[in-house]
Each structure stands twice: as structure tokens, then as C-alpha cells.
Design a binder for these strands. Sequence first.
DNA 1: TAAGATAAGAGGGACAT
DNA 2: ATGTCAGTCTTATCTTA
Length: 299
Amino acid sequence: MRADKCPRCGKGPLAEDANTGEFYCTNCGYVMKEKLEETRPEWRSFGEEQGGENRARTGMPTSITSFDMGLSTVIGSSNRDASGSSLSGAMKHTMDRVRVWDKRSQAANSFDRNLRQAFNEMKMFAEKLAVRDEVIERAAYIYRKAVERGVTRGRSIIQISAASLYAACRDMEVPRTLKDVAAVSNVSKKDLARSYRILVREMDLQMPVPDPIKSVSRIASRATVGEKTKRRALEILTKAHQKEIVAGKDPMGLAAAALYVASTLEGNGKTQKDIADAASITEVTLRNRYKGLRQALGI
DNA sequence: TAAGATAAGAGGGACAT
DNA sequence: ATGTCAGTCTTATCTTA
């Protein structure tokens, strides 16, 4: 699996630097920008509703989910310049300073260690949630900002990681509920919700209002209702939106209710329980939305 | 058996104190 | 900071068709 030819001089062989894990050409000295394993494209599909046709590429050249942005060159310790002569005293001093900062970029401090751990957690959560890589990138960005602003102080990495991921989903309108994220992250829904709100408040995040329409196909596939019913549910939701009865309501509940109405209208016997289970809400909540929907639309 | 109704409890936002 | 209030969702239980 490992290429052993240098992309610059075409020869080789390549060797791994024991300290940095980087690969370099033993012939010309060319250093790979990436760890070799990450350079090959890796194709996979995401999400149950995309059905596999929506493919994304993993292994970005420089990813902010990598704690040091993938820049991992290390400055050596010998006080010699490129041609091998000794450095002047002033230059030695300068190089010392450079090395200090270089070290700091190597996860030598708690800031980077913290980020690295958080990113690993978020990747694991995201994998289980089957969300696209862009969402992870977004989550990583939010987390980094949160740490820089000191929002995370006194809160667990896991909690803020999960909250960042949830925030990223919200931000990018990927329909994942608090419950979903809580389940994969082992953080209670309550704590997750609280951390999420803290993130939003402390960082003045502007979140789009969750759109029930985005949730419909998710519920539909889980409850195995047909495409026709799904489209009907979408029409119902659009009408409901015009009647302005959707404000402040749980989007999952609305989506589920619309699907239930559509399903009844189409005459394929889905019970309230079927739909409610598929949407991870209670039958009562579904009924309440359903009642409002029927009223507003005169069904 | 499915659908509807009722009641109690939790958690958070808005607003006032 | 703390308390109250209205509104929402959830769970449990009972009734109705």
C-alpha cells in the first residue's frame, strides 16, 4: 500500500523520520507534506438517507481537525546553517526562541493536547452519527473558538466536543437531534443541551431555525413510508408554515405529525406509534402537533 | 387494538425583583 | 443573582371507539 517512489525526483526509497513520522526521500531529501497513509483518496458514503450516491472525500490536505493543521515539520537542534557553518551568537538566540514556539506547536502544551483529544472524540461521534466531514470541520472550528474564548473552562472535553458537534449539525442544517448526539457521546441529553446553549450564548453563534422539512426523509425512511407519502407530508408542512403554526414547536414533532397525516390520507396504515417511534418522540407529542395541524389545515 | 384524554413532572426562556 | 410565570415536551395511566 505504501508508495516508495519520491514524487519529486522519481527515485527513492522513502524513509520515515522516527521523530516526526514524516516521510522523506533518501535520494533527494524531499519531505512529504502528509503522512503517507493519509494521502490516498478514501471514498465512502455517508448517511442513511443519501443512499450512497452522495460521496465525500476524506483526508483533506490540511484539515483543522488535525490539531496542528497538518503542519508537523520540526526544527532541528543543531546550531548550524544550511551550509554547515556555525551560527552567530545573536542568531543562536533567535533560533532558541524559534524552537520554543516550534515546540509549542507540537502539542507540547495543554491547549493543543486538549484540541487533539477533542477532535478525536468528535470524529468518533460523527462517525456513529453518519454525518459528512464538513460537519466535523465545522465542529472542530467551533470547539477551537470555544477554547480560545475560555468557554470550556471547568467543563469536560467530552461535553464540549459533543456540544460542538451538535452545534455544527444545527448550523449546517443536518438533522440530528440532541438525543442522537447524546446517545453516541454518552453525554446526558440535559448536559448536552446545557453545553450547547452555553456555546451559542457565549460565542454569539447565529443558528438557523431548525426546519422540520429536513427531518421528514429521515423519519420516512425509518418508518418505511413511501415516496408519495413523503412528498405529501412536505406539502402539508409548507402549508402549515404559511399558517404560522410552526413557531416554537419541536421540528421532529411537526415532521412526524405531517407524515402521519399524509400517511392517513394515503391510506397506508401507519399507526401513531409507528411514526412516533421512527421520529423518537412520544405519541402524545405527535398527537398534539397532529391536532394543531388538522385544525389549521381543516382536514 | 389504536386513538384520544388527562395529569404530573422536568427543564429552560422571558421577565421582574 | 434569584424567583415566578407561561409554554413545551415527556411519561404514565385511563377511557373511548
